[in-house]
């Protein structure tokens, strides 16, 4: 389990992370979403022991991460800006990884390279942006880590490769019980990948939830009656948002879907439709409830 307790990181006078606390359980795919400059990359660099926090604690399985080889050998980090040795090929980088990661699995590297259709002998400078990211992902996954940290994982990948990468991550999480932490500035990218999502804003986590829970606990209901009505009609229902145009009202409801439908049917509406919400819409309404103007965050 990854745990951060009031971790603070400053760069000069700028506070990138401000007393950030969170817990990432093992065996999940944890998504961290936030606008540019929210602190996502800084968070990952703290968790991977690259940065030392000004204050607070960061532990993996209750052991501190910073300058702790015993902990650090269990994870690998794929950053947003990739690093390769000058004029190196994937094969050369594999040798570097072999020297630096005791658990590096050369067979897995070869298999993944074949799966992704990359030539390991070609100079990486000749790869496209997406191919370089694929190469970095292959090298990282070949280290057989317990924890995988991806920063802007899908940046530059085409939809086919994106799916391929997602599937590889899934298989690691499912088969080897690994834990993946993925950051992105796009909710849509993380929507179908992650189990848990957290929203980072201005150096702090302002919202964190299980995705399944997010998707099912909020829904939109479109309802119409042949009589005059207002929000008071729906007193027994947890309505987060009520918009009425003419005789049709759109309700954003939190709660059990079946129970809510049953209650509404008892009111004899002339129109009753239940519509799913996108994750973005869920976030908007959740943020609203918390007092944040989500659209101002420009994710």
């Amino acid at each position: 389990m990854i745990k951060t307790e009031k971790a603070t990181k400053k760069f000069g006078s700028f506070t990138a992370l401000n007393e950030l606390s969170c817990t990432i359980p093992d065996g999940c795919i944890y998504g961290l979403v936030g606008s540019n400059g929210a602190g996502k990359s800084t968070f990952l660099r703290l968790v991977t022991g690259i940065y030392k926090p000004e204050s607070g604690k960061i532990t993996i399985d209750d052991k501190p991460v910073y300058e702790n080889p015993e902990v650090k050998k269990r994870f690998v980090f794929v950053p947003d800006e990739l690093y390769f040795l000058p004029q190196a090929s994937m094969q050369r980088m594999a040798r570097l990884y072999e020297h630096t990661y005791a658990s590096f699995n050369i067979e897995r590297f070869q298999n993944l390279t074949k799966t992704f259709g990359l030539d390991p002998k070609v100079n990486l400078n000749g790869f496209s942006k997406g191919m370089k990211r694929q190469a970095a992902t292959i090298l990282a996954l070949s280290t057989m880590p317990d924890y995988i940290f991806f920063d802007e994982t899908f940046d530059g990948l085409d939809p086919v490769m994106r799916n391929l990468v997602k599937n590889v991550i899934y298989s690691d999480v499912c088969e080897r019980k690994a834990t993946a932490v993925i950051t992105s500035h796009s909710l849509r990218e993380l929507e179908d990948t992650c189990d848990q999502l957290a929203l980072l804003h201005k150096g702090g986590i302002i919202f964190e939830s299980d995705i399944e829970n997010l998707k099912t606990s909020l829904f939109k209901v479109q309802v119409a009656f042949d009589k005059e009505y207002d929000k008071e009609l729906f007193k027994g229902i947890d309505v987060m948002n009520f918009v009425k145009k003419g005789s049709v009202a759109n309700l954003i409801v939190r709660g059990n879907r079946e129970k809510t439908i049953t209650l509404l049917q008892q009111m004899n509406p002339i129109v009753l439709d239940v519509l799913p919400l996108t994750l973005e819409e869920v976030f908007i309404y959740e943020m609203d409830a918390l007092g944040y103007a989500f659209k101002d965050m420009i994710i």
Partner: peptide, 14 residues
């Protein structure tokens, strides 16, 4: 270089 520095400091070696 930031990316190089980050890479090496993420390794399990002190």
């Amino acid at each position: 270089k930031r990316k190089g520095s980050d890479f090496y400091h993420s390794l399990s070696a002190t």
